[in-house]
Design a protein around this nucleic acid. Structure first.
Lengths: 226, 226, 226, 226
DNA sequence: CATGAATGAGGCTTCATTCAT
DNA sequence: CATGAATGAAGCCTCATTCAT
């Protein structure tokens, strides 16, 4: 379930070519890392290009040599991040688990991974959310992420249907609703309410219940959850 | 279901007292209206104090005579708005409808009203979302709004439990999950995907299904929905 | 021979309205004066907006309150200047002088006034010349100036023709050639060679001779010049 | 009529010695050609050192290995250019033509060559004009060019005097006036008004007339021009 | 010699806020 | 109370030039 975009060398959205030399690559990395940290801590608007350059230990001139501007850098970061995240959520889904007796466990784990993703880079998640509307490119990234998530889930639901384990729902709508619901609750718990790991359980269980009740039929040999 | 905050004369968060005289009150209104329009159109950061004053037809000096700063003005606007919105969603909930044969209809209508709210002032909704994290006061408003929504819904769920119409869920968690899920889907459909009214139905139905499946037991005399 | 543009209140090319209050007008004037002086001394590129504001004793913010940018300010200055200059050259031309026995004197005086104009604001003249090509607006001003000069001179030549004092030249071409020739020599002597008043005479005489030989027939009762 | 400066190996104004090796010479040439093209298209200020190096296909480091800075490179270009130009204007002047029955034709051709020079490299001409004042070195080049032109023409006028074909004008002043007048009209027609070849004739004729009327007596066996 | 990454001074511009009138 | 001119910190970005490899 790896994606081409995970490989940073492909399809740079910037007009600036990927540096060839080693020193160059390192500088670029330093800037990206500094930017992630600062965006994470302060948000996008409150982080200036100069801050990033300073934190990376390079001159402002270098910053502009590598990235046309702050926004382009952000786009790059999001593109990297999102592919990683997508993999994290869906990569350990195994069909036999989902449809077997481990189904509930499997769903809950994935939900938890969404929560974990948010809690790893809460600041960047906020920014993504914040800027999606103002900035068409960022919205594009976000939409792409969502669409790919919905697609992944839709595939799984289709498998479930084939195994006669799905409620009579429209697959694409159900997938969208589930993805958004999980995302929103995770957002709320982690980013807005700042709940820590130990406080997640009721929400993880609640969401799992909701999803199961909404979309799945119990496995023949499975005790009803509730 | 009116709230104390709807009445502007009480508990202004500003240090500036409410103007007593008629002309003053009008000036204040003009500024607020201009601000709402501009925030809606351009967002918060892109709207300058001078823009607001100009659009209101008053001097920038007057602006600062009425509002300590742009942010305080925004807070005020949100407080007004949110109380109105809350009322819109919950005010026509009648217990007998929810628990009677009109239950599904009743839920769906409320969800639709959330969608409508978002689509009436999309810009302000974005700002609320955007700034909630950065700005503790705004976050406070947002949390207050959510909490009150959760409270309202929790009350209804409790009623449902008393009537033995609730699934074995924890009321407060279920309320939170439902509120957030609806909010998130509405956000996505209206603000990010810009769907118009005619495209909402699958999502309204899907959400209604999900909520019913998750939280409610069918009325004794009611056909199962799905 | 006064022009509408001499009156600064008409047809501001800036979107910024003419200030109404007295203090405002004074500030505006201070900025313009400072700009003239600095442009004169250092040229356009080497004068920064901050320099101008500092020299005018106002903040950089004020500068941008009055002028959208350095370039617009320059345009304004040129428009003012050029109308003044045009008047200076042609306003004391009296028909009877030109065609009477004072013809030569009259021509020479006008040429001298062109030299004087250049020597009064040599820096601005350079800038006008320099930027005319790069900047269509400035080119427009320059062309307008030249065209109006050519027009003025053309009118005089037409009068001369009516009095049968003109050589068989095409009026409009002759006017253009004379204007440009005088302008160029003045430019060269004053701006490039930095000749001072005492060294002008040979050029004034030479130009006068050339113009007379090229365009005018001697007055019946006049001794041939050369 | 070749000039010492045409030969690049002598008297480089740069501290950097002329490269001895063939590859070096080619690199140098590439840089110069790229610079000419870019200066021509964009002007001096808008062309960056990096642009030139990139266009020449060499590294910016190499650029600075060959030329101490952008300005020095420009000086070099002007020196080359100007000698070529001077030759173009005066090289086909033959004394017997000027003083014989082809005099008018000869003058007009030379004027036309000035027009052609301007139209071949309009951008560089502009730069020369623009920067002459700000930059003493460039002014020096320009003055040198003018002075040499005046000298050439002065020599011709002296020949004319010896043949009793000159009006009673001061040779050096007349030469300066003629040179500047032609230059200025050419500048105006070609660079500012962007007239193309087909529109030059009235100006070529007008200038020829003016010069003849001003400086030359008709040849004994020649019909008066006008 | 060639390379090209790195530098950082310096220019431009915006806008929240103050305060004299 | 209203006015709006004035402020200046702060952000953005460019590009001539240096220097380690």
């Amino acid at each position: 379930m790896s994606t081409p975009m995970t490989d940073g060398a492909v399809a740079e959205p910037t007009g600036i070519p990927m540096p060839k030399q080693e020193r160059s690559r390192r500088t670029r990395e330093k800037i990206i890392e500094a930017a992630i940290q600062l965006f994470e801590e302060r948000g996008f608007e409150k982080t200036t290009s100069n801050d990033i350059a300073a934190a990376a230990g390079v001159s402002i001139g270098s910053f502009y040599a590598y990235f046309t501007d702050k926004r382009k850098l952000l786009l790059l970061i999001f593109e990297q991040l999102i592919s990683e995240r997508l993999d994290a959520v869906f990569s350990n889904f195994r069909e036999e688990d989902l449809l077997g007796c481990e189904g509930r466990r499997c769903i809950r784990d994935s939900i938890e991974r969404v929560f974990q993703n948010k809690s790893m880079t809460p600041g960047l998640n906020r920014i993504l959310h914040e800027m999606a509307e103002k900035d068409p490119d960022i919205n594009g990234i976000r939409k792409d992420f969502i669409q790919r998530s919905v697609q992944h889930l839709g595939d799984l639901l289709t498998k479930a249907r084939e195994a006669d384990r799905l409620q009579p729902v429209e697959v694409s709508v159900a997938a969208a609703i589930i993805i958004h619901a999980v995302d929103a609750i995770a957002m709320q718990c982690v980013l807005l309410d700042h709940l820590d790991r130990s406080q997640w359980d009721p929400y993880l269980d609640g969401l799992t219940d909701m999803i199961q009740a909404y979309a799945f039929k119990p496995a023949p040999n499975e005790e009803p959850t509730m």
